[in-house]
Design a protein around this nucleic acid. Structure first.
Lengths: 190, 190
DNA sequence: CTCACCATGTAACCCGTTACATGATTGC
DNA sequence: GCAATCATGTAACGGGTTACATGGTGAG
């Protein structure tokens, strides 16, 4: 029987969430995780393959060997009932507040050491990257809102929709904040 | 002479930013970094002491041994001119977009696997933690806005003020998003 | 007497990125 | 022929957390 005290990492729950939506080969899991799933999580294949093996050993996923192109056997993974239970328990489990770590803000915290022109330029570049990401989110949301499942809380599209909405709101807020910072800089230069 | 190609880590720039504001012992740096500096970066002493030694070796900080209570010599660190130059160059340097990684959103992405009551409860707990952090930010901002340096872009308080403002805006947005998610859940249950 | 604080350091471990490794098939 | 895609894995390394280690001073 599988190890009952096997601790599952956050990456493990990310993968379980992915397989709960639809079964996949390890390769497909890696493809789906290259672009942020839930718009807030990424991983590479070098992390995913070992984690899939751990989840398999813990009985949270199971696999079936299928025909494939690789030199090693191709495996199709599926979440087990135990995996679904563990995932649901984690979702509603205790939240300890995670330490925030944001490189952009760390830079801004030392922005007083550069002259206002360079500061304004930096904030302009920040704005541009936020805008690009916002545009991408808006496109993705447009595709989801068309389908009816997005209104049903038991449908994965519902969760995709609300996390995407969170991303959109936070990027919009970041853009407003950038504009505000520029006026603060300009007000002082005068 | 110091190694000219020594790469400085993000932690290194966080420490330089701290020492650019005021000189400190390693212990004091660790104290100041326990609560997020710039409201978006933390570190422990076990990371800080080795990094201070690296910065010292690279000539970006210098130290003076002073009287102190520890079993080893107590050192007071100060940023050097080279350190100030390196810090300012990093602030305005290229930004590669950092991959987002948010545990809260990763959970929400799998919220469709639990029943709406548990989902509502989870979001309620999210709201509470955001609210607590927002309250703390607002208190800190109240202390800064009183002092006049906050209006001068060359004053460290200016940078503290704008990063704090960013934190406040993002927490307020998160709270609005939580409230919105609850209405979306309620709309579907009906 | 014990606890908290000052003060600096090291070691083990986890998580993530980059790079190395293998090998078949399909399109240019 | 060469690159891209499918397909799975390992190894080296960097950053971060937790825990171990040392020892003096002052407060309760």
């Amino acid at each position: 029987m599988p190890d009952p005290v096997a601790p599952v990492s956050n990456l493990g729950f990310a993968i379980l969430g992915l397989l709960a939506r639809r079964e996949s080969t390890g390769y497909e899991v890696a493809q789906r995780m290259r672009q942020p799933i839930g718009y807030f999580w990424t991983a590479r294949h070098s992390q995913i393959y070992p984690e899939l093996n751990r989840l398999d050993g813990a009985g949270l996923v199971e696999h079936e060997v299928i025909d494939g192109a690789g030199p090693r056997p191709t495996k199709r993974y599926r979440i087990t009932t135990a995996g679904q239970t563990a995932l649901a328990a984690w979702v509603v489990g205790d939240l300890e507040p995670q330490p925030v770590r944001d490189l952009e803000v760390l830079r801004l915290w030392s922005i007083w050491t550069v002259d206002p022109d360079a500061a304004d330029d930096l904030i302009g570049r920040l704005e541009a990257t936020h805008q690009r990401i916002l545009d991408r989110y808006l496109e993705e949301l447009a595709q989801i809102t068309d389908s009816p499942g997005g209104r049903d809380p038991a449908n994965p599209l519902f969760a995709s929709r609300i996390t995407l909405e969170g991303g959109i709101r936070s990027r919009r807020t970041a853009l407003e904040w950038c504009a505000w910072m520029r006026t603060e800089l300009a007000a002082a230069v005068r």
